[in-house]
């Protein structure tokens, strides 16, 4: 636990409060990359389970083109991006890029040739794509709010949840088929997401002053509005209510797309508030 201002050499602002500086490097482009990576890999895995080719193609497109494009646009020297393959031993960016490359190559080959081993490898790589952003953030000690072992789990479950939410109406639209097991999985994932988000925020609030400041930042002002309305209400409560009201396998196509939209915007909003609420611990000795 960090010490209080009175007992330690801490930076303070004009009003005597601790001066926490929010991270300003990872913003919209990284949000797009993290979000589309999770969504794309999630919809690929769900579509692979259903043997649903259009969903797999969409998943590959989201990761290869949208996520890859956002990363390239973000880099200061994009022509050097190949160098990111050099340090998988210590860097999660390297690991993520390798996972992404394996996912795109094996996934594309699987869609074309339908060889089961390629499918298994692409799904394993998709799991890396879904979770590595969480590892990347969790291994940043400077921002205590992110420095949590729950964050990779949260990113993985959020990706699976949003991917499954998109795969359900997509499958129903293309095939007119109903997939009750996947709808039940989606409901379970929603409940799981709710539990992990609560545990993550509760743990962060009680871990350090900086992480607590992040949690408070996340619940105040415009970030707070986005968190409570975008993530909690429309990203969790309403889709869960819809799922229980409709019951597995009885929902209309419109209601499925509405639930998918709500869940996906919830996943997007959550990543945004997490990125924006990350604050550095003030210098202290």
């Amino acid at each position: 636990m960090e010490k209080t201002p009175a007992s330690a050499g801490l930076l303070v602002d004009e009003r005597g409060g601790l001066r926490f500086e929010a991270q300003s490097q990872w913003r919209v482009l990284m949000l797009v990359a993290f979000f589309t990576g999770g969504l794309g890999a999630g919809v690929y895995v769900a579509s692979w389970a259903l043997n649903f080719v259009p969903g797999m193609i969409l998943g590959l497109f989201l990761v290869a083109v949208v996520k890859g494009g956002a990363h390239i646009a973000y880099l200061g020297r994009p022509e050097r991006c190949w160098r990111a393959l050099k340090r998988p031993r210590t860097s999660w960016i390297s690991r993520g890029l390798i996972g992404m490359a394996i996912y795109v190559v094996c996934g594309t080959l699987y869609v074309i040739f339908r060889l089961p081993p390629l499918g298994w490898v692409s799904v394993a790589a998709a799991v890396v794509v879904m979770s590595y952003a969480g590892y990347l953030m969790a291994f940043s000690p400077a921002i205590p709010f992110w420095n949590s072992s729950l964050l990779p789990v949260l990113f993985l479950v959020f990706s699976a949840e949003s991917g499954t939410a998109l795969a359900i109406p997509l499958y129903a639209t293309f095939t007119r088929g109903v997939i009750q097991p996947l709808e039940m999985v989606e409901t379970l994932l929603l409940v799981l997401v709710g539990m992990i988000v609560f545990s993550y925020l509760y743990g962060a609030y009680h871990s350090s002053l900086s992480a607590r400041e992040s949690v408070l930042l996340l619940m105040r002002g415009s970030l707070g509005a986005l968190f409570f309305i975008g993530v909690v209400l429309f990203g969790f409560v309403v889709p869960l209510t819809l799922a229980f009201l409709n019951g597995a396998g009885t929902a209309s196509l419109v209601s499925m797309w509405l639930a998918a939209f709500l869940v996906i915007q919830g996943a997007l909003s959550f990543r945004w508030v997490i990125l924006r609420a990350g604050v550095y611990a003030p210098p202290r000795y």
Partner: peptide, 15 residues
Amino acid sequence: QCMGCRACMIACPYQ
């Protein structure tokens, strides 16, 4: 060699 990913800026506790 730097490609400007800024992961180091996020990781540095001393900004």
